[in-house]
Design a protein around this nucleic acid. Sequence first.
DNA 1: GTCTATAGGGTGATAGAC
DNA 2: GTCTATCACCCTATAGAC
Lengths: 186, 186
Amino acid sequence: MPTALKRDRLIEAAKTLFAQHGVARTTLADIAQAAEVPLGNVYYHFRTKESLVEAVIQAHRHDIQTLQAQCDRLPDPRQRLLALLAAEREAEPMFVRFGCPYGSLSQELNKEDQLLSDAAAGLLQVYLDWVQTQFRLLGKSVPEAEERAIELVASLQGTFLLTNCFRAPTLLARQLERLEEQICSL
Amino acid sequence: MPTALKRDRLIEAAKTLFAQHGVARTTLADIAQAAEVPLGNVYYHFRTKESLVEAVIQAHRHDIQTLQAQCDRLPDPRQRLLALLAAEREAEPMFVRFGCPYGSLSQELNKEDQLLSDAAAGLLQVYLDWVQTQFRLLGKSVPEAEERAIELVASLQGTFLLTNCFRAPTLLARQLERLEEQICSL
DNA sequence: GTCTATAGGGTGATAGAC
DNA sequence: GTCTATCACCCTATAGAC
């Protein structure tokens, strides 16, 4: 098997386990086992656990940008925002059981060293910037677009937290509906 | 020194350290040192680390209820909600550096065992219930009060996350202003 | 390049003196 | 009741055979 594939499998396994149990409580042995790679082999691909976390963050960033690129294929910024929310809706079971992976990582890594804090914050920044761009394209001024984007993303992240805490899929559904209505009435 | 005081000091130290570094990364040695109590002595007061976490959650719950009781002394539900937001505003440096302690605990413990998940979720539930009660007193129907409460608390929690991630006190200030305006215009 | 075995350090928890 | 000393375990990381 190509060595690059093993690397990808390790990242994918880490992404899942970090989201499910948090970074601190996930051991390299867990990750190696899930990826069906011997433990010692992990260190051939990643120097430290921290560098694996970085790779996971980058993979998440790629996921976000791929989703945004898909939304960008729609002509209207309003439709793009609705497509983003529709994608969140499809991930409902994940939000109920484990919360938002980006929010979880950001929250946890903000309590560790600066380097990983910044990397994780970059995830939410990418998310936020794209939303802000859509509001700009809808004719909002820069400061108003920024405020609307923060408002929307904060609502989303808080909703994901409550959805997870209370294991409440209907809470998620209702909040998404409300946000969709807000976007339509712009 | 009374033994109950040492117990309280341990809980207080744990509360601070959990909020700053997360539960998983805080060791009992850290807590004992911060509370100026010998390490072995911790186990006289708490059987396990988990039981100490439970005690910390209960202390947080007490804090929330104390704050809500203070707000309840105001006659108007609108003023009470504004007083709650004013209290959040005063804790700005904490939100910037460490985020919301309740949100952090809920997020982290939701990835551990069921017992602590439920206890942490109870924190946000207490917060949410009180907000919902205020909306009821403002004449909203039960389902509408519930929706408004979720909307407000989700916005708050998401705002705390973004404030912490981006180390952005102005983001917090602007979002609190916006939420205050929403409450005033009810 | 790949894997086994293990070192080295730290953590939760306990035993037992005082 | 209080504290010291220490156990037993687990985790990251490395050494070295193949």
